[in-house]
Design a protein around this nucleic acid. Structure first.
Lengths: 207, 207
DNA sequence: CTACTTATGTACCGATTGGAATAAAAGGAC
DNA sequence: GTCCTTTTATTCCAATCGGTACATAAGTAG
């Protein structure tokens, strides 16, 4: 129905003039800008300059600024933000937590990417123009917490988390740490400083 | 030297036409807007409308948008953000941590104020226009961490924190939690959910 | 070839941006 | 009363905002 990513027709090349840029690469460029500047502080000029396309091409391929951000967020989830699902694959709750927090530090302090987390700093505060994206990111963060809670429920069932543990509360505790690490990374705190926080957490982890 | 807040002259009323608005009240109005929308997403029109003054009055009294933000941040530190120094007055490190985190939750979920923390969401991401404020807030956050570290050093000296504890690392751990709580508050997470996180922290606190 | 479809660059839209110029207004000093 | 200082509201500024109209270019379908 909606070939927003330039999917070809039923056979061979699509009709009309072919797109002169790669949509995925353009999304990566847009991601870098939104990630570094946030949604509202990013202008269409910033985007078209980074993506190296004109405004009509941007609107034809991605809709508008807000829809572009949604596509960027999806791509972020499957790219830089994918450490969460990988961490959940660890065998025990303790290993999940350590992998998740270390993944947070690594991703939010990657030298070749903006510091911090797109899902946190993309629109933490917003005017009326940005409230839709603000709410989108709040839901994105809560979704991550929910999946971590599910993983902790499994850990209780599997016995590597005490039966009196509260998976929901533990998940919120770990997400609190992850968001806090992202805030400090956005402020330029060094990677090894943040890894020390993870060490402290694991020392006090009661499992 | 700089009577930015309308301080009177050496005796009696200052010369010239008297200011028709209260600067502190105007700063409170500006604080609410910056707090809710962030620095870059806030326009001069938003500010003058909330402060109920004209643009020339704003510039005459506060300089420009960035200087106004600096004054607002100072006022925030002495107002809503003052729970930090109060928490540091608690007798033991454990009580300091609990008071600090509970103060964070209370302040960032105050119903009559914007949700979250001005020092976190004021400019977590920024374009070139906002990088000065971004750096200002990063320094503001690091300063808070430094003061918490000092308090933990005192706790080690006083014996209510183990002598092998790392005050710097502990301070960063607690600040990580505070920032993470602020992020979730900004996203609309309910106050009691965040208090549960504080409970979890205090259960695992090793002192 | 012609017809059709899609993407592109240029130019443009009204609205808004942060900020300044200007003159009138409101007070004290004398 | 006349000066002088400061604040005020109105007006204006060039630049930029997100978004669009339009003509042209580049491809497929027949």
């Amino acid at each position: 129905m909606c070939y927003v990513l330039g999917v070809a027709g039923t056979q061979g090349a699509p009709m009309g003039r072919p797109r002169e840029f790669d949509t995925d690469e353009a999304l990566d460029r847009a991601m870098e800008v939104f990630w570094r500047q946030g949604y509202e502080a990013t202008t269409l000029g910033d985007l078209t300059a980074a993506m190296n396309i004109g405004k009509p091409s941007l609107y034809a391929a991605f809709g508008n600024k807000e829809q572009l951000f949604r596509l960027v967020l999806d791509r972020y989830s499957e790219g830089p933000g994918s450490y969460g699902v990988r961490a959940a694959e660890q065998p025990t709750a303790r290993q999940v937590v350590e992998a998740f927090l270390k993944g947070t530090v690594e991703t939010t302090t990657q030298p070749q990417c903006p510091q911090g987390c797109l899902g946190v700093q993309g629109a933490l505060a917003a005017s009326d123009d940005g409230v839709a994206v603000h709410d989108l990111l709040a839901a994105w963060r809560e979704r991550a917490r929910g999946e971590l809670e599910l993983r902790f429920r499994r850990a209780v069932a599997e016995g590597d988390l005490r039966s009196d543990a509260d998976p929901g509360r533990l998940a919120r505790y770990v997400m609190t740490l992850s968001f806090g690490l992202a805030v400090q990374a956005a402020g330029g705190v060094a990677r090894d400083e943040l890894f020390k926080v993870v060490d402290e957490v694991m020392l006090s982890w009661r499992s």
